[in-house]
Nucleic acid binder design. Sequence first.
DNA 1: TTTACTGATACTAATTTAGTATCAGTTTAT
DNA 2: ATAAACTGATACTAAATTAGTATCAGTAAA
Lengths: 152, 152
Amino acid sequence: MKVLNKHSDYALRALIALGMEPGVRKSAKALSEAQGIPYQFLRRILQELIRSGLVSSKEGAGGGVALARAPDEIRVSDVIEIFQGPVQVSECMFRRQLCSNRANCVLRHEIMRIEQVVNDEFSKVTVGKLAGDLRRVEEARKNLLVQEKPKG
Amino acid sequence: MKVLNKHSDYALRALIALGMEPGVRKSAKALSEAQGIPYQFLRRILQELIRSGLVSSKEGAGGGVALARAPDEIRVSDVIEIFQGPVQVSECMFRRQLCSNRANCVLRHEIMRIEQVVNDEFSKVTVGKLAGDLRRVEEARKNLLVQEKPKG
DNA sequence: TTTACTGATACTAATTTAGTATCAGTTTAT
DNA sequence: ATAAACTGATACTAAATTAGTATCAGTAAA
């Protein structure tokens, strides 16, 4: 059971990259190369993020995209919602009609509770937090290299 | 984002039906008709449940399937595992190799925590619990009909 | 020895996913 | 003015997955 599809996955990577330097505009090409994401695919993903208001863009030479909100205001759940729709456990739940199948309706209570838990978890994690984590990881890695140099 | 696919969905419905009367063998045909699940599809699902040890079978006329364990020992997470594999958030996590993409690796900590939460939630819910819920729902519905009769 | 069942497995259609390609328009620099 | 570097919109395709069908073989009971 794969939770994130490639759209969400690449979108998150791009958002984290943008979140590392909020306010700095980057082109789709630059992001594509830095993150190893197929260019045309990333283009479409960014366009979707722009339409959804998570990212702002500027056309023309020197243009590109940047976060449209503070990194802490962009949640992983927002991204999943955009590319994979709302978290739902079974199809029956989606059309909210009263389901003819009684066993399935029994599942509903548990199902809605779990949907809520999953959404809560994905809401807790923001692009800002992830970018912060990445910053710390890179800092740690840099310090490690400095320490190792004298020994090697 | 649909969490349960048709395999898991139908499997759960069939397991709940079996859990309503543990020990009673039912044929795939009877289950298919009672639950509105396509017969040949259900056959394959039951065969998978048999192989996985959740269900036991008896061949020949008068044969059929029954739960192989106590209903409370069959968890929703078992069913998801069988039909959709382990819950994983992104592909990178599946191959547990150290991912070359740093942003994705940053996601890993959060990702593993959320995987755990989701699995825990699905583990909490058993076929026994769901069958119990269904029993109560049906009881309530029956009482409602009895009360309504004098008025209509 | 027919009927009602499971075991195994091959097949197909529809949908989704991942990725590509193209053309039009905008902005900057020269 | 015009070439270069961008985004906007959208059409297209291949591969994988999902959902569902079909068939043949074997088993057990009546």
